[in-house]
Computed example of a mutant assay.
Amino acid sequence: MKSSEDEVRGGAARGPMSIGAVARRFGLATHVLRHWESMGLLAPARDSAGRRRYTVADLTRVAVVLRAKEAGLALETIRTLAATGDLAQRRTILEEEAETLRARIAAAQSALDLIECALDCDHEDVTQCAHFQRVVSPEP
Score class of each variant (00 low, 15 high):
34 R>H: 04
30 T>L: 00
77 T>K: 08
122 D>Y: 01
36 W>K: 10
72 G>F: 02
35 H>A: 07
11 G>S: 11
114 L>I: 09
108 A>Y: 07
24 R>T: 15
80 T>L: 02
129 C>P: 04
59 L>F: 02
92 T>P: 00
60 T>K: 09
78 I>W: 00
44 P>T: 02
15 G>N: 12
11 G>M: 10
95 E>I: 04
99 E>P: 00
51 R>Y: 14
59 L>V: 00
119 L>T: 05
135 V>E: 06
20 G>T: 12
135 V>G: 10
36 W>D: 07
14 R>Y: 01
47 D>F: 07
71 A>F: 07
38 S>Y: 03
74 A>T: 12
18 S>M: 11
4 S>I: 14
29 A>K: 12
36 W>F: 02
137 S>W: 06
55 T>P: 01
79 R>Q: 11
60 T>L: 09
137 S>N: 12
67 R>G: 04
70 E>M: 05
70 E>L: 05
70 E>C: 07
69 K>W: 00
73 L>Y: 12
26 F>W: 13
133 Q>G: 05
18 S>I: 07
88 A>V: 13
71 A>E: 04
116 E>S: 08
127 T>D: 14
19 I>S: 05
16 P>L: 15
90 R>E: 03
27 G>F: 12
65 V>R: 01
7 E>K: 14
1 M>I: 09
81 L>R: 10
31 H>M: 07
56 V>K: 10
77 T>S: 08
108 A>K: 09
127 T>G: 11
5 E>Y: 05
138 P>F: 01
44 P>W: 05
130 A>L: 06
117 C>Y: 00
75 L>D: 04
108 A>D: 13
59 L>A: 05
110 S>Y: 15
125 D>Q: 10
2 K>V: 15
120 D>G: 14
104 R>D: 13
81 L>G: 03
64 V>T: 13
19 I>W: 06
89 Q>D: 04
114 L>H: 04
101 L>R: 15
68 A>N: 09
113 D>P: 00
89 Q>S: 08
37 E>D: 09
51 R>Q: 11
135 V>L: 09
101 L>Q: 09
125 D>S: 11
8 V>Q: 02
82 A>Q: 13
103 A>E: 09
35 H>G: 03
1 M>N: 08
105 I>A: 11
46 R>K: 14
101 L>T: 11
1 M>D: 09
96 E>N: 10
44 P>M: 03
58 D>G: 06
103 A>P: 00
55 T>S: 14
104 R>Q: 15
55 T>E: 14
123 H>F: 07
107 A>T: 10
105 I>E: 01
7 E>R: 13
11 G>A: 13
83 A>V: 13
117 C>L: 03
89 Q>P: 05
52 R>A: 03
